[in-house]
């Protein structure tokens, strides 16, 4: 008996050691690109110090902050691009969350004519690829003066306008709040709007944070649409549009380390925000996954 237990113990120990090795390996693989990014960002691009393009070694020969200094040197609009992206992200997050909450509440709690029709119609709309309509959206926005110089409000408008279709996760959450609560309040004379504002919303903190977080993160990655709306107007680019040129365009030779530095500065605040709100994100994603 004793022997059996000890052999099981040993088996478990070996299993655990194996698992740890695996986990450490996984962690290394997952972290490697970020470590690489950070190390590259500390390589100087200045002639005579080091070289700013691609190199075949990882650790810079001399650590320097030149690439970061470049971003704030005024030689480019990095600060402007960064601010643009923050403005877009904040407005999108706030407005999109409001719209999603409204739509979700209406679809979850109210029963009106054409409700299922509307939901099915939106589901079908979602199956069209977004890029298809890029050129059309561009000219629509242009009519309103919201391209190039006005690209920032234009982008916010586009991101927010269609966000109503992304109600699934939030509606799923509302569905889990017992309807009896609503009914009780309504018997006491509260209007729908009152119930929505004073009961449902305060109870939905996790889903609100999740929606806002996802909406906040999306504009940082948008290269395709943002570049299409803002082309030729440097000061209304977002970071993705502006910085991809440093990697893809031949006009910018040896900008790789500066791209890395810019990327690190973008990644830091988002990562911190994400880490702080991680639990809400998990809750939203899991809830959404199960609900479909």
């Amino acid at each position: 008996m004793k022997e059996k237990r000890s052999s099981m113990k040993r088996k478990r120990l070996i299993g655990n050691i194996f698992s740890y090795i695996l986990l450490i390996l996984i962690s290394l693989i997952w972290l490697f690109p970020f470590v690489g990014l950070v190390l590259n960002s500390f390589r100087s691009y200045k002639p005579g110090v080091e070289y700013g393009g691609m190199v075949d070694y990882l650790v810079p020969k001399t650590f320097s902050l030149d690439s970061y200094r470049f971003l704030f040197s005024g030689e480019n609009n990095y600060v402007q691009w960064y601010l643009n992206t923050i403005i877009i992200a904040i407005f999108t997050a706030v407005l999109q969350t409001m719209i999603v909450l409204c739509v979700s509440y209406a679809l979850s709690r109210m029963r009106f004519k054409g409700r299922t029709l509307l939901m099915r119609f939106w589901l079908i709309l979602g199956m069209f690829p977004g890029f298809l309509t890029m050129i059309c959206l561009y000219f629509l926005l242009k009519q309103m003066g919201l391209t190039q110089a006005g690209a920032i409000p234009g982008l916010i408008l586009v991101y927010v306008a269609s966000s109503g279709m992304g109600y699934y996760v939030c509606k799923g959450y509302f569905d889990t709040i017992p309807k009896a609560l609503d009914e009780a309040a309504r018997i006491d004379g509260a209007s729908r709007a009152r119930v929505f504002l004073t009961m449902t919303i305060p109870m939905s903190k996790p889903i609100i944070i999740y929606t806002a977080l996802v909406a906040f993160m999306a504009p940082w990655c948008d290269y395709v649409f943002a570049s299409y709306i803002a082309f030729g107007h440097d000061s209304s680019y977002n970071v993705a549009v502006a910085m991809q040129r440093w990697v893809w365009t031949g006009d910018y030779q040896g900008y790789f380390t500066r791209f890395c530095a810019g990327g690190v500065l973008v990644a830091i605040p988002i990562t911190i925000l994400f880490m702080l709100l991680q639990n809400y994100y998990v809750e939203g994603v899991t809830g959404g996954a199960v609900k479909g």
Partner: peptide, 8 residues
């Protein structure tokens, strides 16, 4: 043929 991307 882009020197900025070329190494070694």
């Amino acid at each position: 043929s882009s020197a900025g991307d070329a190494v070694n």
